[in-house]
Amino acid sequence: MSELETAYPWALFNLEQGIYGVSSQYIKAIFKIENLIKMPGMPHYMRGAVNMRGKIVPIIDTRKFYGFQSVAEEINGLTELLGQRKQDHINWIRELEDSVVENREFKLTTDPHACAFGKWYDHFETNDNTLEYLLRKFDAPHKRIHAVGVEVRKLVDQGDREKAFDVVRKAKNSELIQMIKLFDSLVNDFAESKRELAIVLEDPKQNLEIGLTVDRVIAIEPILEDRENTLDSVTHKSHESLGLAKRSKDQAPVFTIDEKYFLNL
């Protein structure tokens, strides 16, 4: 196995949960995406364009190009899901209170692993370190709010409805408020962490420039040829613009981008 034959290191970046690379030989600039110019009638994967020192540079949504969910779609999907799970817990404690006031059985789950959020939380996996960190904050508060249901049911069974009602009232102003704040802050913090970058590629000989959106740049380093695997054996996202290599430090697969393919679109 040898380094790819180039005098230039590679810019490695995340796209969805994969590692992609583009030769630094073709990189003109890397910047946060702002002030996009909308371009009507363009393909679905074209995000728009930016004015770069007086030149209009098209920006491709690289996620969409390769058939992934866009960052905006990812944020919107998580926002909708967490909004529903937040409302679930508002409804849950409201029903707990009503069951005490009306002296009837509370039929919703008191098991934090059995509610819709708990089931999702227990099985959700991500390589996004920011999202993983934000989600860990839910563990203890979520268990505490469901423990309130256990305590209230026990008090009701003992005939102490007044104390049970007091426990619910305190939970509404404590555990529930904390959960609501966590849901809201996770959405905001996750959206802020997902501010994309654009890598602008250029071919000065042909006066061509194109920008590719990336989730984040993770390294500038040489990479190694992969003579053992093929794209089809590593991912179902094979494409004529992609090749396959490996990082030297851990042998992780790198999907190498053919810059000329995009510059000549």
Rank of each mutant, 00 (worst) to 15 (best):
S2L: 07
W10M: 13
F13S: 04
L15K: 05
Y20C: 08
G21R: 02
S24C: 13
S24E: 08
Q25Y: 03
K28S: 12
A29L: 03
A29K: 04
A29P: 03
I30P: 12
F31G: 13
F31R: 10
K32S: 10
I33V: 15
L36M: 14
L36K: 07
L36V: 15
K38R: 05
P40H: 06
P40G: 09
M42H: 07
P43Y: 05
H44R: 04
H44Q: 07
Y45D: 10
M46W: 15
A49P: 08
N51L: 11
R53H: 14
I56Y: 03
V57M: 06
I59T: 02
D61I: 09
R63Y: 06
R63C: 07
R63F: 03
F65A: 01
G67W: 10
F68R: 03
Q69V: 03
A72K: 14
R85S: 02
K86Q: 12
K86F: 06
H89G: 00
I90M: 10
N91V: 14
N91C: 07
L96W: 04
S99Q: 11
V100A: 05
V101D: 03
R104L: 14
E105Q: 14
F106D: 15
K107M: 15
L108Q: 09
L108M: 12
D111T: 14
A114N: 11
G118D: 07
G118N: 06
K119V: 12
W120R: 12
W120Y: 13
Y121M: 03
T126N: 12
D128L: 09
D128C: 09
D128V: 12
L131Q: 11
E132A: 07
Y133I: 01
L134I: 04
L135T: 13
R136W: 04
R136M: 07
K137A: 06
K137H: 03
P141K: 02
P141L: 02
R144V: 01
H146D: 08
H146P: 12
V148D: 05
V150G: 13
E151V: 14
V152A: 05
V152Y: 03
V156Q: 09
V156M: 15
Q158E: 15
G159P: 06
G159I: 02
D160E: 12
F165C: 06
F165E: 14
D166Q: 15
V168W: 08
K170G: 13
S174Q: 10
S174R: 09
I177N: 06
I177V: 06
I177A: 07
I180P: 00
K181C: 04
D184F: 06
V187P: 00
N188A: 14
F190T: 11
A191R: 10
A191Y: 00
R195H: 12
I199K: 04
L201N: 03
D203H: 08
Q206V: 08
N207K: 13
N207H: 09
I210T: 11
L212K: 08
T213D: 02
R216S: 15
E221C: 06
P222K: 08
I223G: 12
E225W: 00
E225D: 11
D226H: 00
E228D: 07
T230A: 01
V234Q: 03
S238P: 01
S241I: 05
L242M: 10
G243P: 03
S248T: 01
S248A: 11
S248M: 06
K249T: 14
D250K: 08
P253Y: 15
F255I: 02
I257R: 01
D258M: 13
E259S: 13
E259D: 05
E259P: 02
E259G: 09
Y261F: 14
L263W: 13
L263T: 04
N264P: 00
L265F: 09
